[in-house]
Amino acid sequence: MDGILLPLITPFAADGSVAADALAALADQALTDGATGVVALGTTAEAFALDADERRLVLDVCARVCREHGAALAIGAGGSDTRASAAALAAHPDVDAALVPVPYYVRPGEAGVIAHFTQLAADSPVPLLVYHVPHRTAQPLSGATLLALSRIPNVVGAKVASGMTEDAVALLGGCAPDFAVFAGDDAYLSPMLALGARGGITASAHLATERFARLVSAWHKGDVDTARPLGHSLARLASALFAEPNPTVLKGVLHAQGRIPTPDVRLPLLPASEQSVAAALTLL
Rank of each mutant, 00 (worst) to 15 (best):
A161Q: 03
S162K: 03
T145C: 14
L149R: 10
G199Q: 06
G196W: 05
P191M: 11
Y188V: 03
A176E: 15
Y188K: 03
S217I: 00
F179I: 12
W219I: 01
K221H: 08
Y188M: 11
F212M: 05
G199S: 08
T209F: 04
D178G: 01
L207K: 13
P153L: 01
H220D: 14
K221V: 00
F179Y: 13
V160F: 07
L207P: 08
L147Q: 10
K159D: 00
A158V: 03
D178T: 07
L189V: 13
L146C: 09
V156C: 10
V181Y: 01
I201N: 08
N154A: 07
S162R: 03
L215R: 09
G174E: 09
A158Y: 04
G173A: 13
F212T: 00
L171H: 09
T209G: 05
H220G: 14
V216D: 07
V169L: 15
R214E: 14
K221M: 09
A197M: 05
V155N: 04
F212W: 15
A144Q: 14
G173I: 04
V216W: 12
V156Y: 00
A170P: 06
A170H: 13
G196R: 12
A205I: 04
K159L: 05
M192P: 10
V181A: 01
R198T: 12
A205Y: 10
H220P: 03
S217E: 14
P153A: 01
R211T: 04
A187D: 14
A218G: 09
L172R: 11
T165P: 00
F179C: 05
T165A: 15
E166V: 12
L195H: 11
V181S: 02
L207E: 02
R214N: 11
F182P: 04
A158E: 00
K221I: 00
P153K: 01
M164A: 10
L195I: 01
V156Q: 11
A170Q: 12
L147K: 02
S204R: 06
F212K: 02
S190G: 03
V216K: 10
R151S: 13
T202V: 15
A144G: 10
A180P: 00
T145Y: 01
A205E: 07
G157H: 08
S150V: 06
